[in-house]
Nucleic acid binder design. Structure first.
Lengths: 227, 227
DNA sequence: AAGGTTCCTTGATTTATATCAAAAACAGCC
DNA sequence: GGCTGTTTTTGATATAAATCAAGGAACCTT
């Protein structure tokens, strides 16, 4: 499969005419990353951004003591590392391949040139950044106003929406802890509490079943508390 | 002063040719808000965004129990409420006037039309949203990986940069607590500790002096801890 | 299937911060 | 300049979550 074909299903490029897809394809190049490899580091000078075409990528920050907080986990079709394209300067976080990955790389200068002559692309990019901002405000809200059980409940409800109550975690519990702004021990304890309260049932390390959607929603909304 | 004149010093409109400034002026209207009044609510349908020309505005979220977390405090010249312009839908947070305010209002549809025919404006907007994202990642990092003293130290250093060690808080300590993701009591205690440790000296409710910039930086970086 | 490695869970303890309550300091205002 | 309401501070206590430590389960490799 060539670059051209990879551009088809990407939200950022939706609705663009054929010739502009061709231009985009022309400036991009394919890069591959082995599972566990670092794609870029916080503070590193950014010369372009990526659109993931295969695999999963984790965007995260590190504390002074080495604890990590995961800002986002991206799946196929999603752009990442786009912030410094428009602010200039450095990547604001780390990016690591969670599995073997394949991504299209767009060099900054060329992409900005394309976007300047292309209002639809600009609007798509504006929509993308706005959605990210909305996401981040929700995350900030959760972190500062909810406790861990609430955040976990919200996450489970979101993941359960698709597969009717059966939740297949798309990250390890260790990763999930980082995503919820806590540590594995705490996550484990709270999952046990949720199970004891009859809200969920743990099947194995990666799957669980939602038994009481109502109850989880109350937890997520801060109406109810555990125990 | 007319709308035209108000558009001059605004970063979002920097570098735009005269005729486009005229267009922007043409679609905007001036709105005023009394201190303490609500400009928009979370979840409210957004029909446009604002550029603040006088006063201060607080953007915040509310928890189920009524605790508030301040995402941002905007001063004159800064746009706010722009996220739903591009995602469609609702404002993701509350906006309240912290003082008597004056703001230019830009209706969504007209603004999107202008931006479509105007690459420079689009790029300025992209830069603005990207800067916001960068900001939010830093905030998320602080909230999940630093404790309150570290966040406070970082805030003080930032505020002190301008006025050489003399920090004139631009918000009340109550607001500052909300901005740091904590509550007034905790903030007060930590300020006292900072003073006892010889890092700062409190002058009055709104001003303090930084005595040991090094020490604050160590706190902010997570190298040092209080007590 | 055995071994090793990673991942997950459980327990005991500590710590940072929230909560509740009340006093003290400050700021605006007639 | 003294009064009133708001903001800030201080104290005692409660609690969520981190830390330290270790045991168990799951997973992968050869």
């Amino acid at each position: 499969m060539g670059q051209r074909d990879r551009l088809g299903g990407i939200y950022l490029f939706a609705g663009l005419p054929e010739d502009q897809i061709r231009d985009l394809s022309g400036i991009s190049s394919l890069r591959t990353f082995k599972k566990g490899s670092l794609i870029f580091s916080e503070g590193e000078l950014a010369t372009g951004f990526y659109v993931l075409s295969r695999g999963k990528v984790k965007i995260y920050k590190l504390s002074a003591e080495g604890r990590e907080f995961i800002l986002h986990i991206f799946a196929s079709g999603e752009p990442f590392g786009e912030v410094p394209v428009f602010t200039g300067g450095n990547y604001p976080a780390y990016a690591e391949a969670l599995s073997d990955c394949e991504a299209l790389y767009f060099p900054r200068a060329e992409f900005v040139r394309l976007i300047s002559g292309n209002p639809s692309l600009a609007l798509n990019m504006l929509a993308l950044l706005s959605r990210r901002l909305k996401n981040f405000s929700a995350l900030l809200e959760d972190l500062s106003l909810k406790e861990v059980p609430g955040r976990l409940a919200a996450y489970l409800l979101l993941s359960g929406k698709k597969n009717r109550q059966q939740v297949e975690l798309d990250v390890s519990k260790n990763q999930l802890a980082g995503l919820l702004g806590t540590i594995p021990e705490t996550l484990s304890r709270i999952l046990t509490k949720l199970a004891r309260a009859g809200l969920i049932k743990q099947i194995n390390n990666r799957t669980l079943v939602i038994l009481d959607e109502e109850g989880l929603a109350e937890l997520a909304g801060g109406v109810r508390r555990l125990e």
